[in-house]
Design a protein around this nucleic acid. Structure first.
Lengths: 214, 214
DNA sequence: GTCTATAGGTGGATAGAC
DNA sequence: GTCTATCCACCTATAGAC
């Protein structure tokens, strides 16, 4: 289909890189033009304004993420495996779209998710709800603790990997490395840990109640 | 001491609000002057540049956070209570300094924590290490699972509350509310959940191994 | 569709009066 | 210490040739 990437794709790709790295205000039209190797004035042929370009860029990446189902969950057998599959899918998504975490968090702090409201609402009705359903199913089968609020549990599960990639510089420093983040091998180990952690928090049958451990 | 807040404090307060809300580039000197009710040119009497002002503002809030110990941990008796105390201290810190999460995350994405490296390193040697020590102590006493990497466990614990406040608009939407975030009562319940979640993930004595739950 | 040239506006920063 | 006035650089956006 797109044998050679069209001019629009070049522009959107460049905009995605720069907006992710520098944010909306710090990124200039001229930078985007240079990064995309097209004339800056050309951006106004395709988009009405910088704001419009930003929205188009954001909608494109959000669309890519949404179409990408969480089918891995259904494929997995057993409650525990479904949870693991979800975490692995989350990791894969963030690894495949390295710009997403920064764009997402910028959209949070810069616009209170104003441009991503619809996408997040769809996520709430899609992937997030599926994770909640898996948790509820596990609770009904007695595998997972019934005292848990499934929505809260889902957020706790998501937060581990999300925070790890968003606060990458801090995590790097906390783990004794540099602000460029932990080395890949260590990240891999954390992601494996995240699966275990989520499962242990979910599983019923703990011999000690939370309040009694000394 | 500071009967009436000095001009510098007015400026730093205004800068803190605006930098947190809008970020470095989107915030102008004139806005800060207006917000602080002082003449914009006056900022250059106290600070060499916008960059210098930003750094002063950031160092001030980081200093406030660092001096604030995690003494609650030592005060608590029992491994479980120490974990709970840590999470509660984290929540209190973020509630008392509502600008901090946004400033922190902006420093991550905008500068890769370049201006916060020292503060984070101190955290790594302070509060974070204390949390790790509590986990190790619990492991040595057989209360907490020995298979856990204490540093990873600490990050998983921290991530829950951190992500909740950073991604507040998304969390609000996922929980069925608006992008202004979940209502206070719901946030309180999540923070209580976060304590339980962390403990259950830590506690040993789960009857099922993670891999065998069906 | 793509480029040149430039208008119009704003931002960071300074000079200098008070 | 605080304010007025202003300079210069740069940014978004447009007009118009090709």
């Amino acid at each position: 289909m797109t044998e050679s990437a069209g001019t629009q794709d070049l522009i959107l790709d460049a905009a995605e890189r720069l907006f992710a790295r520098q944010g909306f205000t710090a990124t200039t039209i001229k930078q985007i033009g240079k990064e995309a190797a097209v004339n800056p004035a050309l951006l106004y042929y395709y988009y009405d304004s910088k704001e419009t370009l930003y929205r188009a860029m954001l909608q494109r990446i959000l669309g890519q993420l949404l179409t990408r189902g969480t089918d891995a969950i259904e494929g997995a057998t057993g409650h525990a495996e479904r949870i693991r599959a979800f975490v692995r899918a989350q990791v894969k998504l963030l690894v495949d779209h390295p710009h997403f975490p920064q764009l997402f968090v910028r959209e949070m702090v810069d616009h209170q998710a104003a441009h991503a409201t619809e996408a997040i609402t769809n996520t709430a009705a899609g992937a997030f709800k599926r994770l909640c359903d898996v948790i509820v199913a596990g609770q009904n089968d007695g595998a997972f603790r019934k005292a848990l609020d499934p929505r809260f549990a889902a957020i706790s599960i998501i937060s581990q990997v999300a925070y790890f990639v968003i606060a990458r510089p801090a995590v790097g420093l906390l783990l004794g490395h540099s602000r460029t983040g932990p080395p890949p091998e260590l990240s891999e180990r954390f992601f494996a840990h995240a699966e275990e952690w989520a499962l242990q928090a979910l599983l019923s049958g703990s011999s000690a109640t939370a309040g009694s451990a000394q």
